[in-house]
């Protein structure tokens, strides 16, 4: 791939992104909302029966060892990966250029790589009431035993697709279509008002 200047990425949330404390925070802030702005968001898909080779390629390129099982994932701060469908994985890096690093590792015989770095927006919700607010949005079980650390889930909120990874005991990273991200963000802020929220 030829070297080229990457265009500066603007946040779709910007007009509605207001750092500070909001809502019912007199007795404390119970969730923190932020946009994590990873440099790379990739979608990797294995052909049937090539899943193990794809997982091995992810390990070689990123150092992330995906656990077995549907929706299994791992997050180490700067990098994250999780399954979101059979044989399909989202891989995220805070740095740009991860697609190029995979170029030689995902051969046409193994599967495909789609660079969604400019197509998805990553929103983080953290804090003691994160599960509570998420449960108002999505009809899935957010309790730690049902949704373990690192795991991923595919679901949607009023037709806005969302891939969710648990990146901490009380922290979730939500990947939504960039074109819907501002609307989703506004809804998430409204939903967080009752518990008191801080935008960082």
């Amino acid at each position: 791939m030829a070297d080229h200047q990457l265009p500066e990425r603007l946040s779709p949330l910007e007009p509605e992104y207001h750092p500070g404390s909001h809502g019912n925070f007199e007795h404390g802030v119970d969730v923190i909302l932020s946009e994590t702005r990873p440099g790379s968001i990739l979608q990797l898909a294995a052909w049937p029966s090539e899943e193990k080779r794809l997982i091995e390629a992810i390990r070689k390129v990123t150092g992330l060892a995906l656990p077995d099982g549907a929706g299994g994932g791992v997050s180490n701060g700067g990098r994250a990966a999780f399954g979101f469908a059979p044989g399909k994985f989202t891989v995220v890096d805070e740095a740009e250029g991860l697609a190029a690093a995979f170029a030689g590792a995902i051969t046409p015989a193994i599967g495909t790589l789609t660079d969604l770095s400019h197509g998805r927006t990553a929103i983080r919700i953290a804090g003691p009431k994160a599960e509570w607010v998420m449960a108002k949005f999505f009809a899935i079980d957010f309790a730690l035993p049902a949704f373990p650390l690192g795991a991923g889930r595919s679901t949607n909120h009023h037709d806005i697709f969302a891939q969710i990874q648990r990146s901490g005991a009380d922290q979730f990273d939500i990947y939504v279509f960039r074109s819907f991200a501002r609307s989703f963000w506004k809804a998430l802020c409204h939903a967080s008002e009752e518990v008191g929220y801080e935008v960082q």
């Binding site: 549907a70 929706g71 469908a85 059979p86 009809a139 899935i140 679901t155 949607n156």
Partner: peptide, 11 residues
Amino acid sequence: CPYCGPRDVIE
């Protein structure tokens, strides 16, 4: 769903 587990029919 064999992959996702129990989900509401709306999905």
